[in-house]
Amino acid sequence: MEGIGDEIGDEIGEGSREVEVEEEEEDFIWRYEPQSSSDEEEGGEDCFTTPKKRMVVTAYGEEEEVLELKVGMVFPCWEEIEEQFRGYAKQKGFGIACRCGTVKSVVGSDKEKGIGKEKRNCLWTCECYGVPERRRKASDSLHEVIGSGVRKSKKCQCPVHVFASVNKLGEWVIRRAVMVHENHHPTPSKSRIIAYNRKKFLRENPHVLRQANVCSQSGMSVAQTYNLMAVQRNGRGRMPFLRKDLNGVVVKVRKARTSGGDARAMFDYFKKMKADNSDFFHVYWQDAKGMLQDVLWVDARSRAAYEEFGDVVCFDSTYLTNKYKMPFANFVGVNHHGQSILLGCALVSHENSDTFEWIFGN
Rank of each mutant, 00 (worst) to 15 (best):
A263S: 11
Y226Q: 02
F28R: 06
S16K: 10
V71A: 08
L169G: 14
P132Q: 06
E351P: 06
A195P: 12
L242G: 11
K199C: 11
R54Y: 01
E127N: 09
H337V: 10
H337I: 09
V180Y: 08
D6Q: 12
I341F: 12
K323H: 15
R151L: 15
I29K: 15
R203M: 04
G260F: 06
S191F: 03
Q35Y: 11
L296Y: 10
P51S: 01
E25S: 13
I174W: 02
Y306D: 06
F360M: 10
V56K: 08
M55L: 14
S221V: 05
K190Q: 15
N234H: 11
V178Q: 15
T49K: 12
C98Q: 09
T187D: 07
N335C: 09
G43E: 06
P132I: 07
K152S: 06
S153M: 05
V57T: 13
E41P: 01
N205Q: 01
Q84S: 09
E79L: 13
F48T: 01
H161G: 04
I4D: 13
R86V: 05
M73W: 09
I4V: 06
I81G: 01
H350E: 12
G5Q: 10
A265H: 14
Y226L: 02
E64F: 03
L67K: 03
S37G: 10
N330F: 01
K274F: 07
S153W: 09
F331M: 12
I174P: 04
E80Q: 10
Q35C: 12
R236V: 13
N167S: 13
S153R: 05
R176G: 01
L69P: 02
L242F: 05
V332E: 07
M229D: 01
N335P: 02
R203D: 06
V313S: 01
Q232F: 03
D262K: 11
C345E: 11
R198E: 14
F270Y: 12
M1E: 11
D354C: 09
V298R: 13
V178N: 15
R238V: 00
F94E: 01
K155Q: 04
G338N: 03
E26C: 02
E63C: 00
F281N: 00
W30S: 07
H181M: 02
V57K: 10
A263G: 06
N322F: 08
F281C: 00
S36E: 01
N330I: 11
K152W: 02
H161T: 06
E7I: 12
G61D: 11
L67T: 06
D279W: 09
E33A: 03
M55V: 09
K113C: 10
W78D: 11
N352A: 03
E204N: 10
G5R: 05
P327I: 04
D268L: 11
R175F: 08
G338C: 03
V166K: 13
G260V: 02
L242Q: 10
A263N: 07
D6F: 09
K255H: 15
V107A: 08
E171H: 12
G101F: 14
Q217W: 05
D268A: 10
V222W: 05
Q91W: 02
V166P: 00
Q339R: 14
G44W: 15
K117T: 07
K113L: 15
P188F: 03
S38E: 14
V166C: 07
V332Q: 08
E79H: 09
E171T: 05
C158A: 04
E351M: 04
S16V: 13
R233W: 07
E357S: 13
H185L: 15
R86W: 02
G237T: 00
R254I: 03
S221R: 04
L242E: 06
C128V: 00
